[in-house]
Design a binder for these strands. Structure first.
Lengths: 143, 143
DNA sequence: TTAAGTGCAAATTCTTTGCATCATA
DNA sequence: TATGATGCAAAGAATTTGCACTTAA
């Protein structure tokens, strides 16, 4: 699993230990593309490490984020969702089933179209979030 | 103040009462363009109605949102920000001073560029959020 | 008059943290 | 073996809610 070598590398690089808990949190997060919440990650990790605590999961999610290996999204809900996919991409949140989908097509946004060059705003990053019905919920036509 | 007649209208329309607290919450929110948090709205309202409670402010923000008179933004923080400006617009969040600016230029986004027509995703609305340095913090050049 | 709305405080939800102990490097 | 990480439980921060009282319509 090449993902693990990235983790090992980064950990050594930053003088951090590679504990079983940290490894499993990262492994489980790379397995899914559902942008799980901390509680959901906790449940996934718990299946493999029954003794793990929620606090440890929170601490490792924070550490992995600081290592640049995962992203945290706080948009549109009162809790965070986590994602091990690090390429720039957009999200589609289904208002019905609450799932978050990745939209991998590049956004192709022209910032200058929106932010005039002389405005003085320096964009570090941007996020484009879509909300609506996913194909599955849309098909059931019961919105 | 024409904003108030909108409130009166909507309230009558939906069989809701127009209490002093509800009125002042809305009035204060229309006065600012700083996207205040619930606690900040509470402080603004408290200056005019010292007896008001935080719970009442939360309840009224929720009600006003349901009335379609204000918007709630939960992006990027663990708390909400509220806004009485209802036209579609984008936001710029300064990573340094944490202020949120309105960007009124229309986004001019072509959804189909990002979401292929046949994808099955039905977009209800989208949000484009910029993050970076505002003109003021950018000028101080100390990021 | 009467039910929607309020004030107050307690409860909920998500997240962080202090501390004694554990285990990686 | 030294110290970064863990488990546990308690604390925090933002928000919601139950209940008796108030007030707009």
């Amino acid at each position: 699993m090449k993902n693990m070598s990235v983790l090992t590398e980064k950990a050594k690089e930053q003088g951090l230990r590679l504990t079983r808990q940290r490894k499993v949190v990262y492994e489980e997060l790379t397995k899914v593309d559902t942008h799980p919440r901390a509680e959901e990650v906790f449940q996934m990790v718990k299946r493999r490490l029954p003794q793990v605590s929620l606090g440890t999961v929170y601490r490792n999610l924070k550490t992995l984020k600081e290592m640049g290996l995962i992203s945290e999204y706080k948009y549109a809900r009162n809790y965070s969702r986590f994602d091990a996919r690090m390429e720039a991409h957009n999200h589609f949140t289904c208002l019905k089933c609450d799932r978050v989908f990745d939209l991998l097509e590049p956004p192709n946004l022209n910032f200058q179209q929106i932010l005039p060059k002389q405005s003085g705003f320096k964009v570090r990053y941007s996020r484009l979030e879509f909300y609506g019905e996913c194909p599955n919920c849309s098909r059931m036509n019961s919105f």
